[in-house]
Amino acid sequence: MTAVRPEAPGSDRYQGARERSRRNTLSAASRWFFLTAAALALLVLAVLAYDTISQGAGRLNLQFFTSYPSRFADQAGLRSSLIGSGWVLALTVVMAVPIAVGTAIWIEEFAPDNWFLTVIKLNLANLAGVPSIIYGVLGLAVFVRFAGMGPSILAGSLTLALMILPMTVIAAQEAIRQVPSGIRDGALALGATRWQAVRGQILPVALPGIVTGVILAIARAAGETASLIMIGAFTFIAFDNSRITDDFTTLPIQIYNWTTRPQEAFRANAAAAIIVLMVIVLAFNLIATIVRNRFRRFR
């Protein structure tokens, strides 16, 4: 590079060619380096899947789904945690979705564009970044203790509803914003009121996007652990939940419980429960993808 000699191998031209070929080789090699970086995370995911399935598949039988937790690993099952998860998720959706969609409609279609709207939007963005355990502290102090609900299904659902609210609002906003403005303007020009335009024209078009966002939020809530442990759902439940005032436990909490047991036998239980949880979460994600791709009318 620096040597400037007139004779052939060290000449400028020779050096230039070598330098170019070195740079080209480096560049060609870099492709594989960057590909490895991208693929490595997927490799970890594959190892995680393999490890879990090889550890846990043997435990997946009917008894595993129909048994209550037990201190004997081979008799313990997911019955109460599956029922608890079902209750909490259903109630969370019922409480969070109307408010989230309402908020998104209000922001996108009704709210006057002023400083207050900016505050609301900034607030939502920040709420979406608040760690889930902080929502747990909120639920513990407000719902469990102050409102006297105890560590009940209701308290758990309220906590999760607040947690998934910001991300659901943001997803619904995105969906509404993607509706072509001609549809809105057309409805308004024909004399529709704001709400008539929203209900009759905008919501039907935005619905797939909103549903996708809601399903992804449910998937997130289905795997949520820390905030529910915080409100006191880390308990031994050996009955079927039937009221929203019942104590409860959920699938991820059961996984946490089995993971932290010192006995090796519980590791298989944890792995088996993880298989069940991952199937549920992946199913939600798959449905969300299908809804998004099948029903999206405008891009």
């Binding site: 997927l42 879990t52 652990t225 996984i255 993971t259």
Partner: peptide, 23 residues
Amino acid sequence: LKPLLEALAGVPTVVYAYFALTF
């Protein structure tokens, strides 16, 4: 590749926790 990478963000953290300790 991109959706697969983003799927990593959807794995519940308690699953990662199990993986960190046991594997």
